[in-house]
Design a protein around this nucleic acid. Structure first.
Lengths: 201, 201
DNA sequence: TCTTTCTCTTAACCTACATTATTGGCTACC
DNA sequence: GGTAGCCAATAATGTAGGTTAAGAGAAAGA
């Protein structure tokens, strides 16, 4: 019973991994033995500025967000993580030094955590995992390269439209304020944009 | 003589790799046998929009830049690559589909190229290489995550100052136009910023 | 050498977006 | 049932940075 429940919980992660590498049942068990499941309540912090990110985090239910707060006190959302996504402050994870990002829950959320130090060990016992996480890092890298270009070349309205088409499910559950902090405008301007502009054109 | 010259040429790359993994002399030779050295003249294209990026590229001398051109015809520089840096359109490299980025030479440049398909093979024969490229991808990812935050939270002036302190050697050899295209302002505005602002304060 | 082209600068004007402040609706909680 | 917090909407005013245009050097090129 217990093991069956666990398998359910790890299912999404294992499917995610199976897209790129295939693990034997023993490897799977070994890998899973390092995982920890955790619940994060809406608005609860997982990390705050200054914390060292010791875990890689995978979302199985709900939604997390990572953001930083600038010297003027404004939030800038770096990423939303829906089920099937990983999230973290990469710099802190790599260097194991205090990070600059906050991570908290947009909704009640379930996550799987894996200690970075355990993962580094796992690379030695199951080298295939290194293949998986290389691909993961490369994909994340590619996504950021693309968002970089978008942020430089698109207007606020275009960034909003891109956000809608990229994350249709998020639009429904996020407040306008959150969306504004992601696309990089003030909530007031987003409101004006949504209410005035369509009428004129 | 030939082999000595080659070793010189690969020296920077091998040192770069040796920072994270140690290869046996045979592994080194095997790895090196896949590398190609190439010169790129100033202003010469290495890739244009629509090209498939089949190689990973490592700069040993000079400087490359990657950029995209938006629908209005404006260049947005994504990265400069000085000696010791890698450069490429990650999305195209991963998917082997036509890329959206240009790469050309800021100065006369020497590079080392490695076919992505060869690299994928090398991961199998020398698994340590996968470790190296995982770390590389993670570092690149972390750098973009940071630049993302900067672009959202810093003013044009602050981005300029950050660029200067991050790449002091580049400031000297780049035109203002190039710097402007990197920090995301028009050349006119950068000029105004540099000449007017210091006088007032 | 004489164009041609490119970069930098300046300046007048323009606009996308920020700031501040006020409103009313909604939910939550004593 | 009041009041305390959040959030969306609106509006007046402010500003960072864009646009257009034009001229001066510097560099490239023939």
């Amino acid at each position: 019973m217990q093991s069956q429940r666990s398998e359910m919980a790890y299912d999404l992660l294992l499917k995610n991994i199976a897209m790129h590498i295939s693990l034997s049942p023993e490897e799977k068990d070994h890998f899973v033995s390092y995982l920890k499941i955790k619940k994060v309540r809406k608005k609860q912090f997982l990390y705050q500025e200054g914390d060292i990110h010791r875990h890689v985090v995978f979302v199985t239910e709900g939604c997390l967000r990572s953001y930083s707060i600038d010297p003027h006190g404004f939030e800038h959302i770096v990423q939303f993580a829906l089920p099937g996504w990983w999230i973290g402050d990469m710099h802190s994870l790599i260097s194991q030094q205090p990070g600059s990002m906050y991570i908290d829950a947009v909704d009640d959320t379930k996550i799987i955590m894996l200690l970075k130090s355990d993962l580094d060990q796992l690379y030695l016992t199951i080298p295939k995992l290194e293949h998986f996480f290389r691909i993961l890092a490369e994909n994340a890298f590619a996504a950021y390269q693309r968002r970089q270009i978008d942020n430089l070349s698109l207007s606020a309205k275009e960034r909003y439209e891109k956000f809608c088409s990229l994350y249709p499910s998020l639009i429904r559950c996020l407040s306008q304020k959150q969306v504004a902090a992601y696309i990089g405008v003030t909530p007031e301007f987003l409101s004006k944009m949504l209410n005035h502009t369509p009428l004129h054109k």
